[in-house]
Measured scan of single mutants.
Amino acid sequence: NQASVVANTLIPINTALTLVMMRSEVVTPVGIPAEDIPRLVSMTVNRAVPLGTTLMPDMVKGYA
């Protein structure tokens, strides 16, 4: 099973992502692959992402 990116904290809308905000976890449904974490750093989220939420491609500006 592939690990996905999961919010390690509440990420407010329009926040630039940092490494400490994200962790990898095997979850269903599958979200952004964990190997993309380095690429996500400094990208911003377009909605509030609660703790434990899987990051989906449409949640990160410029990812999809």
Rank of each mutant, 00 (worst) to 15 (best):
M22W: 02
L55W: 02
G31E: 01
V26Q: 12
V20K: 12
D58G: 09
T15V: 11
T18P: 00
V45G: 00
S24Y: 14
T44L: 13
Q2A: 09
M22V: 05
V26L: 14
M22H: 00
M21I: 03
V5A: 12
S42L: 13
D58W: 12
P50V: 07
S42G: 13
P50A: 11
V6F: 02
S42W: 10
L19G: 04
G52Y: 05
G52C: 04
K61F: 10
D58F: 13
V60H: 02
E25H: 09
L19Y: 12
T18I: 05
P12H: 12
V41P: 01
P38L: 12
V26D: 15
T15N: 04
L40H: 00
V49I: 15
V30H: 10
E25Y: 08
S4L: 02
P29W: 03
G52V: 02
L19C: 13
E35L: 09
P38Q: 11
V6K: 03
L17E: 00
I32A: 02
R23C: 04
E25C: 06
V26T: 10
P50F: 13
R23K: 13
S24W: 08
R47G: 05
L40M: 06
V30W: 12
P38V: 11
A64E: 07
I32F: 03
P29T: 04
V30D: 15
I37V: 08
L40D: 00
R47A: 12
P57Y: 09
Q2M: 11
G31H: 02
T18D: 05
L51N: 12
T44P: 06
T28N: 10
N8H: 08
A34Y: 14
I11G: 00
V6E: 01
V41F: 06
T15I: 06
S24K: 14
M56N: 07
T9A: 12
R39Y: 13
V60C: 02
T53G: 13
T28P: 00
L10I: 14
T15Y: 11
L51I: 13
S24Q: 13
V5N: 01
E25A: 14
D36Q: 09
T54R: 04
S24E: 13
V20G: 14
P29D: 08
R39A: 08
S24I: 06
